[in-house]
Amino acid sequence: MTKVRPLIAIGILLGCATLPLMITPVGAQQISDRAKQVGMKIKCMCGACDMAAGVCSHPGGTFSGPCQAWALPALREVDGLLAQGRTEQQIIDSFVAQYGSIVYAEPPKSGFSLVAWAMPTVYLVIGAVLVIFVISRWRRRPATEAGPAGSAPKPISPELLERARAQAARETED
C-alpha cells in the first residue's frame, strides 16, 4: 500500500497538471515560424519601438516577446491570413493598405525606396573608382614631384623639411 500511495499522488498531480491542457490546448498562443518570417518584413507599429514585428520585444513593456501592444496581434493576424492561403506579398500588402508604407521593416524595392537599396552600391562604386584613381595617380607621380608645388607657396626642399621635423621633434618630445 505504501508503494502505491506515491504513485497515486503522482497520478493526481499529473492529472491536475494536464487538466488545463485539455481546457487550453498547448500551442494555442504559439505563432508559427512562417508568421514570424513574414513578421520580419513588417515593422512593429506599437509606437514605442522601431523593431520588426517578428522580433519585437517592446522594451520596458509588460510583455516582452512579441509585443502585446501591436506585434502579437499582428502576428496572429498573419497566421490567420496564411491559413486562408494568402501569399506573403498579399499579407504585407494588406498591412501596407492599412498602415501605409511606414509598416515596411525594410524599404520596398520599388519607387523612391529603390534609392535606399542603390545607395550602398553607389557609394562602393564611387569609392572604388576614387581609390583606383588615387592609386593610378600615385603610381604615375615621381617622388620628386611630391610636395607643395605649382601656384602654392615655394616648394619645401627635403633638407628644409627634415630640419623642420627635427625642430618639431625637439619641441614635441613625448
Binding site: M51, I102, Y104, A105, E106, P107
Partner: peptide, 28 residues
Amino acid sequence: CVAVLSGTLFPVFSEWFTGDRISVGAPY
C-alpha cells in the same frame, strides 16, 4: 559608415521627398 548613416536618415529623406516616411529596419 555612409551606408549606415544614409540608411538611418532615409526615413527623414523619404518624408522630405515623397511625404511618405519609409522605415529602414534591421533587415536592410
